[in-house]
Design a protein around this nucleic acid. Sequence first.
DNA 1: GCAGCCGATTGACCCAGATCAAATTTGGCT
DNA 2: AGCCAAATTTGATCTGGGTCAATCGGCTGC
Lengths: 237, 237
Amino acid sequence: MKPSVVTSEPNGHHCDDCAVRGAAVCSSLDAAELREFEHLGRRVHFDSGETVFSEEDITTSFYNVLEGVMRLYKLLPDGRRQIVGFALPGDFLGMNLSGRHNFSADSIGVVKVCQFPKGPFGRFIEDRPQLLRRINELAIRELSQARDHMVLLGRRSADEKVATFLLGWRERLVALNGPSDMVALPMSRQDIADYLGLTIETVSRTFTKLERLGVIEIIHGGISLLDPARVEAMAAA
Amino acid sequence: MKPSVVTSEPNGHHCDDCAVRGAAVCSSLDAAELREFEHLGRRVHFDSGETVFSEEDITTSFYNVLEGVMRLYKLLPDGRRQIVGFALPGDFLGMNLSGRHNFSADSIGVVKVCQFPKGPFGRFIEDRPQLLRRINELAIRELSQARDHMVLLGRRSADEKVATFLLGWRERLVALNGPSDMVALPMSRQDIADYLGLTIETVSRTFTKLERLGVIEIIHGGISLLDPARVEAMAAA
DNA sequence: GCAGCCGATTGACCCAGATCAAATTTGGCT
DNA sequence: AGCCAAATTTGATCTGGGTCAATCGGCTGC
């Protein structure tokens, strides 16, 4: 939200100790390539609520999320907001055709990214088709998720939306941190509403309803899934 | 909708006389490659309402639309449908990670596609990074469209949805056939409703309303845009 | 400890768009 | 041309989720 104050750590970073090395774009590179790749990017730190890039900005960099959560969103002229996704460690951002970002991204809590200037990164890809293939894989996966989300936005009820969101978000956290029924929700209720095409009030009421039904417990900074099966039943329709 | 009866024309087809050669994936190939590519695929004809492929089917082929319109959709278990897009000539279908299609596709009116078996096509791409780059471009463009559609589904009113749809559809037709204020709508009202996350009644009423306002005229098989500027104003919010 | 703030919750009411129910138009077929 | 089935339009009514308006509750700074 505020102008982004970027703190970079020009030195002392290595892909070796990078938590997302195996999952991110980098997974397509061998040890030697990784060493070269390392010098292309630099780690950048964002405090909570900073803008990483804005829709319509000229794309100058690609980003690999290392740590934290980002909201990715589009705004209508009158201020209505649709969150098109949340980025987590391992996600790759910045691909586009027009040379401009087609959504905005800002940090939810502290975020660390690996930032690659567009030019050098483009040249590095040039003669590494396996990296291009990896990027293509990530794009296709996102496309599939985008279509699932269209179904949710266009055809699901508020209850189904919230239940589906909780399960999907849990799945992503599980893939990162291992199984747990505690689901951390670092984003605000407004963020969840803007992701699901609802209002903050409806999200809040639905959470309360799920808690009263005994299927979740609302805890500080998230929820606890008491009855995953019932939540799945609500999500399925 | 019916089981798909496929009529193929094994011979007598050439990329030379292909209408979409310049626009589709093929645009990344030179003359020699195009000749080789030609032998990989075959033209397949579908009558109106036939299923080209279904969600969850194992992917056996990729498709390049040559002629006609297809609806691409996902179904919820209880039958609710969300159309995730319409495919027009030049569109490339079948990319996925799981080895299964993640949506269904059927023809709206007569459709001709160029069908490529997955294996040979995959091998052909292998040492042609510029084709991979082209496919990547198409994926990224679709991703951008998918995000725009999320905004529409999650945050726009019925009037805005319909107006936005008419303008967007016109733009696609103009890109194919050149400028015109006649907008052919080969899909049914139900298809439009399922694309916009509305009911058929709301779509019908909105069309009637636009006609009464004098900004469109409902004609056989489509509409005529009488006042594009007013429609744009309605779409913008 | 407590004042002030901001996010979240809760309540009361409303309305855009869904649902239900007829017409009406269109399109194939013979 | 004439008949049936399907698609579309139109009307009447209902309701899920939005809007407006208080609280509530948890931090922060003093």
